[in-house]
Design a protein around this nucleic acid. Structure first.
Lengths: 291, 291
DNA sequence: AGACATTCGACAAACTCTTGACAACTGGGA
DNA sequence: TCCCAGTTGTCAAGAGTTTGTCGAATGTCT
């Protein structure tokens, strides 16, 4: 799952500017590309390299790793590899703090560069599981502790939602198995559900997304028309499920229904005739795909 | 919105005046037009270029992007939403129907291709005003007539929101005047507000977006911290405003508050100490920028 | 009349391209 | 300790690209 910078509205930069921003010489940048394929810049009509948003992050990360004593080849391997378990957990977790700080400070620029770096370094699934969703959970708990206002929570959700939704182009097309995704009435947190959808998409599924706050009856109607292989309903709090228990049970009789969310939510699944999904969105997608 | 700049009552200026206002040489302006089609000025009977209000913003934004280190060509790519055939009003309106049909059929592929075509043909402002927002209004009214369910409405909002949010990258950065945008509690339709924010961004503003369903008190807190030049609150129904009348009036005492929405909403503005904005999102942005 | 505009072609400064090379450094092995 | 091989940042040369600016001849506006 990669974003191609060609069609991005974001203007690209040439090698000199990248050099200034990242603090790496132009010759070095070209050498890294030639020798390790760290970058794959697009080209201007005349052949000039044009770098996208993630490239500055990659160059910075290279410098960082080299400064920490790794060889250039090693750094390149760490930066270029889309997914890599070795030692990816620790450094990724370090991004959570800065991301949270930027979000609660309503600082769009910083938040976006952290996200650029994270999405450039990690696979989408890792980025979501290790950084983005933990950061949003932290924002949520700061709000429930009264440390920040709803404004900050809204700002953070909207910014992160924008980044994630940008990756959803075409997730409803193709020939794979189809899943219908929605949050029950009253549930406004759809970020984890988006991540879930993206993870499913990566596994070849077709995703139809109804989003937050969707009445159970209309989920059932839509399911009747689309005939998905699975209907996934996600909620953060048990109340939303309890309030709709009857309608969900009815839905479960006509569709394969899966419940996602914290353990108290999924615990209610069997009683309603639904299947529980692991609390982690990415794990959940894997489980659904496997089952 | 001034769809057809030819007939707009807006003052039209010649190249020298634009050069002075935007701080860009006349030769440079002509070169940008010739080489990148950044402008499409109309002409006087004698052949003089006549520029509209958006052109100054475009020129300014070009300078800004170039100062940030982007090449002129890339700045141009980011600034031009390739304007389609002149007088594109009629053909554009023809896209509304197919878009609505695709959306209510939960057909992501078709909906996205219509949007692709529309965004490739028209400026963002035209696409919003002539196609996207009308289509969403049509979806909304079909729902209120009971012809479609909330599922379709949700699907449509989410798909369109994803496309629009993808264009918001960086709208909070830069050096322009800052605006704080939010919908009042209970108001869930933020699409027009996003369009409004994008139109402001095109005019050089910085946008901080709190989104749907934001308590007035937290708007006030955020405004206290960000000190924006304008706070814009948008609602589709008067009820949302009335329910928050007192809080909004209080907000209007400490901030420059503008109300956007249908006429019955903006009619309530003056009573609350706020300023009304035109119902059309793009016109509204132009008005705020001009005032 | 005089300020302001138009087009077209052209130029030069700043930047970037590729290829190939080289010197400084590293980490062993003899 | 010396030497070798691999690694890596930097440089050079010559060609090509990008882009602001200019000149010249001509036309428009008030």
């Amino acid at each position: 799952m990669s974003v191609d910078p060609e069609n991005s509205p974001e203007p690209r930069i040439r090698i000199g500017e990248l050099s200034r921003r990242a603090g790496v010489g132009v010759d070095t940048l070209r050498a890294w590309e030639r020798r390790y394929e760290v970058f794959r810049p697009s080209r201007s009509p005349g052949g000039f390299r044009l770098y996208g948003p993630g490239d500055e992050a990659r160059a910075r990360r290279m410098s960082e790793l080299i400064a920490e004593g790794h060889s250039t080849a090693e750094a390149a391997r760490a930066v270029v590899r889309p997914a890599g378990p070795p030692a990816a957990g620790a450094p990724a977790a370090e991004e959570v703090g800065p991301l949270v700080e930027a979000l609660v400070a309503l600082d769009e620029g910083t938040a976006n560069s952290v996200l650029d770096r994270v999405l450039a370094t990690l696979s989408l699934e890792q980025a979501s599981a290790l950084v983005i969703l933990p950061a949003m959970r932290e924002v949520g708990s700061r709000w429930s502790r009264g440390e920040i206002g709803i404004a900050e929570e809204h700002f953070a959700s909207n910014l992160v939602r924008a980044r994630l939704l940008a990756l959803t182009r075409g997730w409803g097309s193709g020939g794979g198995r189809r899943a219908l995704l929605a949050c029950p009435p009253g549930e406004k947190h759809d970020l984890a559900l988006i991540v879930f959808g993206l993870a499913l998409r990566d596994r070849g599924w077709r995703v139809t997304f109804l989003g937050a706050d969707t009445p159970t009856g209309t989920i059932e109607e839509a399911a009747g028309r689309l005939r998905p292989e699975a209907v996934v309903v996600a909620a953060l709090s048990l109340e939303r499920i309890e309030a709709e228990a009857e309608a969900l049970a009815s839905l479960a009789r006509s569709q394969r229904l899966l419940l996602a969310g914290p353990t108290e939510v999924t615990a209610a699944a069997r009683r309603l005739g639904a299947e529980p999904l692991p609390p982690d969105a990415v794990e959940g997608a894997a489980a659904l795909d496997a089952g």
